[in-house]
């Protein structure tokens, strides 16, 4: 198990280096001049050149790259040329808003997707299965911005049950950040009212974000369960008199969980990198919104920072999935 872990982690380091290279290259081939942006719209040639020197953009590419890697190693993501704020600080704030949203959305997706997938497989071609199929197809097909607007209109605006947008009411003082996740921080401080408020703001965007993820977890889990229930060892377990619930929830589900885990890992990566539509509709102050607004103004340091964070998140998700694979299937661990 240790060897498996070390090998996976070593692979992750190589991938991280590749990711840093890619981010750097993409930022440098993009048709935009950060020096001109930094110097402002009315700047003359001399001022632009001064800005270029100030940001080190006049140096050869390999030097710029080494400096970029060195800064990253110290946790320095550079400064936004548009706002002058350090990108690291912005990222820390926006990232945790997105992380909180995604964590809740993924929890919803897993807690609903897996049991519904199991039920659909056990009662295949019965009404449960048809019902979840409709849910899954809608989950994939409904555009998130449209579905989000619909929920805002119905539940938030017409019925007035939940707030329309934002992360907290403008009049609410957020708890001093410990983890950066409002739900966790409010609980840590024993502030139930704040928890409730944060949840009321979070739940609609989380539902919208979770729907496609729920749909794919459900469908993958269902088809893997159908396959797993057909396995010879399931026939043997039935013949030996193993209890039916035990066969479904342990003997078959454990086998079906390997591919399901893979899709959960992938979905997690995609989810973190595609929150922008949901964040825009619900005015959620996350990295998606931050990246898009920076990209529009041609401000590349934040975009590079977000790309790196999102890529890193993808890698961590993959690593966790690999480790869970090994924990679940000893043959992988020993291979």
């Amino acid at each position: 198990m240790i060897r498996y872990l070390v090998r996976r982690a070593a692979l992750a380091v190589v991938m991280l280096f590749g990711l840093i290279c890619m981010t750097f290259v993409i930022a440098n081939v993009a048709p935009s001049d950060p020096a001109a942006l930094a110097a402002g719209p009315d700047a003359g040639r001399a001022q632009i050149e001064a800005a270029r020197r100030e940001y080190g953009l006049d140096r050869p590419l390999h030097e710029q790259f080494l400096r970029y890697v060195g800064d990253l190693a110290r946790g320095d993501f550079g400064r936004s040329v548009a706002t002058g704020r350090p990108v690291g600080q912005d990222l820390a704030r926006y990232f945790f808003a997105t992380l909180e949203l995604c964590l809740v959305a993924m929890t919803l997706g897993i807690l609903l997707g897996i049991p519904l997938g199991v039920l659909s497989a056990v009662y295949r071609d019965r009404w449960v299965d048809h019902g979840t199929r409709i849910l899954a197809v809608s989950g994939i097909a409904l555009p998130p911005f449209w579905f989000g607007l619909l929920l805002q209109l119905g539940i938030a605006s017409s019925l007035g049950w939940l707030p329309t947008s934002g992360r907290l009411s403008v009049f609410t003082e957020p708890a001093a950040p410990v983890t950066g996740l409002l739900l966790v921080d409010s609980l840590l401080r024993g502030n139930g009212a704040l928890f409730g408020e944060a949840m009321s703001y979070l739940i609609l965007p989380a539902i919208v974000l979770s729907l496609p993820c729920l749909a794919s977890i459900l469908r993958v889990n269902r088809s893997e369960m159908v396959e797993a229930l057909r396995a010879d060892h399931i026939t043997a377990a039935r013949a030996h008199g193993v209890a039916r619930w035990r066969i479904v929830t342990v003997h078959a589900l454990k086998n079906a969980m390997l591919p399901t885990l893979a899709i959960i890992g992938l979905r997690w990566g995609w989810m973190m990198s595609s929150t922008v539509l949901v964040e825009t509709v619900f005015d959620w102050p996350g990295i998606g919104l931050y990246a898009v607004s920076s990209a529009i103004s041609g401000d590349f340091k934040p975009v590079m920072g977000v790309t790196l964070i999102v890529g890193l998140n993808f890698m961590i998700a993959n690593l966790v999935v690999d480790l869970l694979y090994g924990a679940l299937d000893p043959r992988i661990r020993e291979a």
Binding site: A231, D232, H233, T235, A236, A237, H240, G241, V242, A243, R246, V250, H251, K254, N255, L328, D329, P330, R331
Partner: peptide
Amino acid sequence: AFLNPLLNIGTQMADVLHGQDSA
């Protein structure tokens, strides 16, 4: 093929015994 690849022998046998107990 007729043994579950992901469960150890002890678990599989205990499941058989427990299943027969409850039946």
